[in-house]
Simulated assay, not measured.
Amino acid sequence: MKEIPEIKLVTVPETEEAKKAVGYKWNDEAGTRHKLGGIPDRLCLEEYPNCKDCGQRMTFYAQIDSIGDDYDLADTCAIHVFVCFDCFTTESQLNQI
Results as ranks from 00 to 15, higher is better:
45 L>F: 11
12 V>Y: 08
93 Q>C: 09
63 Q>S: 15
34 H>G: 02
42 R>N: 15
80 H>Q: 12
11 T>Q: 10
42 R>M: 14
52 K>P: 04
62 A>G: 10
62 A>I: 05
97 I>V: 15
51 C>A: 04
15 T>D: 03
85 F>H: 15
48 Y>D: 10
52 K>A: 10
38 G>I: 05
93 Q>L: 15
41 D>W: 04
32 T>A: 08
11 T>M: 12
18 A>N: 03
33 R>Y: 03
75 D>F: 05
59 T>Y: 06
86 D>I: 12
40 P>K: 07
23 G>K: 02
97 I>S: 03
97 I>N: 09
86 D>C: 08
35 K>H: 15
40 P>M: 10
16 E>G: 06
31 G>I: 06
5 P>G: 02
61 Y>A: 07
74 A>Y: 12
53 D>H: 13
12 V>T: 06
11 T>V: 14
29 E>Q: 06
84 C>G: 08
55 G>K: 07
20 K>N: 12
91 E>A: 14
93 Q>M: 15
63 Q>D: 10
92 S>A: 11
53 D>F: 11
91 E>M: 12
68 G>Y: 05
41 D>R: 09
9 L>V: 14
38 G>V: 09
44 C>H: 11
60 F>K: 01
5 P>A: 12
40 P>Y: 07
9 L>D: 04
12 V>G: 00
61 Y>S: 02
22 V>E: 13
47 E>D: 14
16 E>N: 14
97 I>L: 10
6 E>T: 13
90 T>M: 04
48 Y>I: 04
96 Q>R: 09
42 R>C: 11
26 W>K: 13
88 F>H: 11
60 F>V: 00
70 D>I: 00
16 E>F: 07
76 T>W: 04
34 H>Q: 02
11 T>E: 06
59 T>Q: 06
24 Y>C: 03
89 T>P: 01
63 Q>L: 09
61 Y>R: 07
4 I>E: 02
47 E>K: 14
15 T>H: 06
5 P>C: 01
33 R>F: 01
72 D>A: 06
78 A>I: 00
42 R>G: 06
57 R>Q: 15
45 L>D: 12
28 D>E: 15
84 C>D: 07
72 D>H: 03
44 C>E: 14
45 L>P: 00
73 L>M: 09
34 H>T: 02
80 H>R: 14
96 Q>F: 12
39 I>N: 10
14 E>D: 08
93 Q>S: 12
66 S>R: 08
92 S>M: 09
91 E>W: 01
1 M>L: 08
88 F>G: 00
7 I>P: 00
13 P>F: 04
7 I>S: 05
79 I>S: 00
90 T>I: 07
17 E>T: 09
10 V>Q: 11
94 L>M: 13
60 F>D: 05
82 F>H: 07
67 I>C: 10
41 D>Y: 11
14 E>Q: 15
36 L>R: 04
53 D>N: 15
88 F>C: 04
42 R>D: 14
20 K>E: 14
55 G>A: 05
30 A>V: 09
5 P>N: 13
31 G>A: 06
54 C>P: 00
10 V>D: 09
26 W>A: 12
59 T>S: 15
10 V>E: 14
7 I>N: 08
10 V>K: 14
77 C>K: 11
26 W>Q: 06
30 A>I: 10
46 E>V: 07
